Amino acid sequence: MSERLSDTQLLAFLRTRLPVADWSAACLRPLPVNYTSRFWRLDAVERVYVIKEFFPGNEDNPLYPTLPQQEADALNVLARHALAPDLEAFVTSPTGTPLLVYGYDPAKSDEIDVGEAADLIGRFAALKQAIPGHQTVPSGFHEVLARGDAMLATIPDSRKAANLKRLRPADTLVGQRAVERSLVHRSFCLGTILATAGGARLIDWQYAGLGDPVEDIACFVSPGLATLYGLHPLVAHAEDLFLKHYPDRDTVGRFLEERGAYHWRLAAYCLLRQETLTHSNAPAARAYGRALEEEVDLLLRLKNR
């Protein structure tokens, strides 16, 4: 990226792309930046647009590669099923970065309860329409553990990695079984659910892939993922309520058997990011360190049940 996209550049660009009837009444404001993207919100008359600029160089992440085209493809299909907001544009910005815009009619309240979240992800998991072009991700207890092993193998001198290996669930805890792959969100939490006038919608599809719906349940109850999104981890009652409302009981049953693998893999990822970002991005390294502590605490609780 040769230059930083300014608010003035962006607004001029959006005027040529979005069907806003009265630009004099529209208001553009920046939103918090995350590790892989910048965001803006454009408030127009009775319509809200969120603009997402993807940073380059995040396609090779060992667990969460950032894939802008995948997000565009998912929004394009899932909006028709009332599962995601409308894709308004997916273009190259004036500075050469991928730029994605989604739009929605705002809700009167931004609050989402866990029962509504369970219904939303359950309807998504039951969707049979294929969305082409998505990555294939580790699926099932043993593949998930193997990905965690591979990440820790890249930091062989880490004392924390040696300690984390002691919490690794044994391969023998769950038998080998085939998994019917479907599209999974992979960062599903209250931070990736949007309240709209038409109901709850899922956002942030850049990490999605073909895997096991168990992963999305594990994400929602993950204290580490919640921490990374700046949220408080779910209390036990909220987790129980979410699992009670999730419509596919077979998937809930597999989650209860296999959840340790998903939490352990996320802990391995957080440790890898903490150790590799310490010198290049200290605030991010500290955030991953806090998420790691949350996942380790959960693993210890699960082990002692």
Rank of each mutant, 00 (worst) to 15 (best):
S139L: 00
A282C: 01
Q135K: 08
L167S: 10
G191Y: 01
G224H: 04
A195Q: 11
T276R: 11
L231R: 09
Y229H: 14
R273I: 00
Y104E: 15
V91C: 05
A238C: 14
H245K: 15
L14M: 00
V174T: 02
P85G: 12
H142W: 09
F124V: 02
A200W: 09
A261W: 02
L99W: 05
R286F: 03
H232S: 02
V214R: 04
E3S: 13
L302W: 05
C189P: 13
Y269V: 07
L11T: 15
C189G: 09
Y269G: 10
V50M: 09
K128I: 01
H263T: 12
Q206G: 01
A197D: 05
D119T: 15
P169L: 02
V114D: 04
A226H: 04
D7P: 07
G260Q: 14
R201V: 00
P233V: 07
R15K: 15
L78V: 03
F255P: 10
A153W: 07
E257S: 10
H232P: 10
A282F: 09
R290V: 03
S6T: 09
D86C: 04
D43E: 10
R249Q: 15
I131A: 03
K165V: 05
R301M: 06
A236N: 07
A268S: 14
P132R: 04
T227V: 01
M151Y: 14
F13V: 08
Y246N: 14
A291Q: 05
G191N: 00
K108C: 14
A178E: 15
Q135I: 08
F54I: 10
D73V: 01
A26H: 02
L5T: 08
L202E: 05
Q129T: 10
R123Q: 01
A79L: 09
D248G: 13
P32G: 13
A285C: 02
V252Q: 08
P156H: 12
L87H: 14
Q9N: 13
P68S: 03
L99P: 11
H134Q: 06
L256I: 07
P85S: 13
T36S: 05
A130D: 13
E294F: 08
G289V: 01
S187Y: 09
L225A: 09
V20F: 03
R286W: 06
A44I: 02
T154L: 12
E88K: 07
T66K: 04
N163S: 15
R47Y: 02
Y35E: 13
D171C: 00
L277A: 15
L202T: 08
S6M: 05
A79W: 04
G230D: 06
A238M: 05
C270G: 11
A125P: 10
A284Q: 02
V91G: 13
P19R: 11
T276P: 14
M1C: 09
G199N: 14
V144A: 03
